[in-house]
Simulated scan of single mutants.
Amino acid sequence: MSALPVFVDVDTGVDDAMALVYLFASEEAEVVGIASSAGNVAVQQVCQNNLALLDLCSVDVPVSKGSASPLTAPLRTAEDTHGPEGMGYAQLPATARGLTEYDAAQAWVRAAQEHPGELIGVATGPLTNLALALRSEPALPRLLRRLVIMGGAFDYRGNTTPVAEWNISVDPEAAAEVFEAWGSGTASGLPIVLGLNLTENIAMMPELMGRLAAEAGSSTRPMSAQDPRGTRSSASNPLIAVLEDAMRFYFEYHFAHNEGYLAHLHDPLAAAVALDPDLVECRRTTVDVELTGTLTRGMTIADWSNLWAREPNALVGVDVDPAAFFDRFIARVGAFAKSSLGEQA
């Protein structure tokens, strides 16, 4: 079976990087484009992270620069969560790769037009680029085969405000435009939306990182909450070393916020579901985004009881098997690291 064309919009970002590596490691996926979104860090840093990851993984994919700011609000970034360059403690190699001459919104449209009815879109950052793409090509919902969005929190607490999730909160207007576009009844299929209520079940822990290193055939020192902050990876495999250094910062952030020495892999779950929607159970509903509430701006609301009497515009993830996800993630990324990068000399 031929590989599925996949277009990814990311604000890389520790877990975005893990999602990209998962897609590179999946034989059924052909990543045909990467859109860089301002979010976890500024858009130029996101571009550099994406280009450097391609070098590290020896993969060739066009990378396009997205909007430097949300549609209307000033940009907020999350260096406290992802590190000053977005990759935790990891130091990515310098790269001479360049960006496309066209921007990320154009990249969305080009990819959809080149693969009509076949393209799978994955959005793991703010939805600014996708909203701009929809403004230039309103037929985009009909052109995509599938869209997976990591964003929102449904009947669940937020991680940016008490009710709002990060990606939606950074650009609520863009998210509202995207959900509206898929609510017209003309889309080829409803987007799969994975909120915090689902993705926080996907908790990466030191023992799982140890399994990943073993799968890659890499020697490494086990990660522990007792390690001094900023301890660098001893992994012999260069990709595993980068992932461990990135994840350690993420672990420390969650530990400092009393969530345990772990990290939620929000974005890799979206990547996995893009290739296999059966990994999650979803409910069909209508989703909208609060734009004006003093306390609730950026909140995602699902009309489970159809009180709005509007067309459904989303399949909201409500259940997932974390063990099944991690078995697949570790097998794929471990084999990819082993075969593509091997041991350092």
Rank of each mutant, 00 (worst) to 15 (best):
D16M: 07
D9Y: 07
A176N: 03
F24A: 07
A104G: 03
H82V: 15
G183M: 00
T12E: 00
F7E: 10
E215P: 06
Y89W: 10
A246I: 06
Q44H: 14
R97L: 13
P228V: 07
T199W: 04
V320R: 04
S2N: 14
H254C: 08
G293S: 14
S184H: 13
P70Y: 07
A256V: 09
E27Y: 02
P322S: 08
A96Y: 10
D303Q: 11
E118D: 09
V148F: 05
G342V: 06
E85Q: 14
A216V: 11
A271C: 09
G83T: 12
P62W: 10
L144E: 07
A164Q: 04
C47G: 01
V193Q: 02
Y250R: 02
N197G: 13
L275Y: 00
C57M: 10
A246K: 00
G195W: 05
T186A: 15
L134Q: 03
A235I: 00
E173L: 05
A112Q: 08
P162H: 13
A274F: 03
T296A: 07
G117C: 10
L279I: 08
D267F: 03
L71N: 12
D303W: 14
G33N: 03
R328A: 08
S136F: 01
A235H: 00
R283S: 07
I301V: 15
L54Q: 12
W166Q: 02
A78I: 09
I120Y: 03
S219G: 14
A302P: 01
Q45M: 07
V333G: 01
M87S: 08
V41S: 03
E101P: 03
T81R: 02
G317C: 13
M204W: 15
A19D: 03
E28G: 06
P70L: 05
T81M: 09
L194K: 08
A324K: 13
M1T: 11
V193H: 02
W166R: 05
A270Y: 05
E165T: 07
S305M: 15
R110Y: 10
T124G: 09
L99C: 04
L75I: 08
E165W: 05
A131P: 05
A216L: 13
Q45W: 01
G33P: 00
A213V: 00
V21R: 03
M204P: 01
C282V: 15
R135K: 15
G183S: 02
R157N: 04
L295S: 13
N167M: 03
A323S: 08
L56V: 01
V287F: 12
C57E: 02
V316K: 04
S188D: 09
G342N: 05
A214D: 06
N313G: 13
C282Y: 05
P62K: 11
P141D: 14
F325Y: 11
E259Q: 14
S169P: 05
A52H: 00
L262R: 10
M299W: 02
E101W: 12
V178D: 10
V32H: 02
V109Q: 07
